[in-house]
Design a protein around this nucleic acid. Structure first.
Lengths: 94, 94
DNA sequence: TATTTATATAACAATATCATTATATCCTTA
DNA sequence: TAAGGATATAATGATATTGTTATATAAATA
């Protein structure tokens, strides 16, 4: 059972509609907290909390730029591939 | 984008170490409840509950064979691809 | 230095998930 | 049709997750 717990944690982190959507939005490039907040129409606090979970699980990282903080996918290629596989699976299911 | 909820549900279903391990074991072929139970060393009831969650989320299906019930991956190719992508992502992370 | 803007954290109530125990159901066979 | 094996379900308590509200921190600027 190699890295089973790590893999499960990664899946779990992405297994929430808000966090999955954030990951999707970040494919097109880094976004600051306020942008994510507006795109998903959720509260500032909740946005920050979900971003924190994504960061803890190694999915995103962030960099401060003066007053704001920009979040970005740590490994965009991998996330892109993962989402592509998933989309295909889901589409063919319906 | 509207498959977002479905995709998140799929990820969530696989985002538990026991269920992820079950999915992995089923790659090599169908297994009955008792076999899964023994392989993972968890209780019968818990095994059944996790299998039920996997089934509800369209990841596995089952067929009764007399006294026993065999569970199998509904779309082995897709699960295999998904896990392959994940494994690669995890391995390169460490 | 005081104010403003952007983000993070704490506290909390509501709900969900989890594993366990006990019991029920389904199928086979005697 | 009764008994036994295999699986499912119900009930439950413990823990985790979620979103909200309120507050704190950090950086820019007045």
């Amino acid at each position: 059972m190699f890295q089973n717990q790590d893999t499960a944690s990664l899946l779990k982190a992405l297994g929430h509609p808000v966090r999955l959507q954030i990951a999707r939005e970040l494919i097109s490039g880094e976004k600051c907290v306020g942008e994510v907040e507006n795109m998903l129409s959720i509260s500032q606090a909740n946005t920050s909390q979900h971003l924190s979970i994504l960061k803890i699980n190694g999915i995103v990282d962030c960099v401060r730029k003066g007053n704001i903080k920009c979040y970005f996918l740590k490994e965009p290629g991998k996330i892109k591939r993962l989402l592509a596989v998933l989309e295909k699976a889901i589409q063919e299911k319906g």
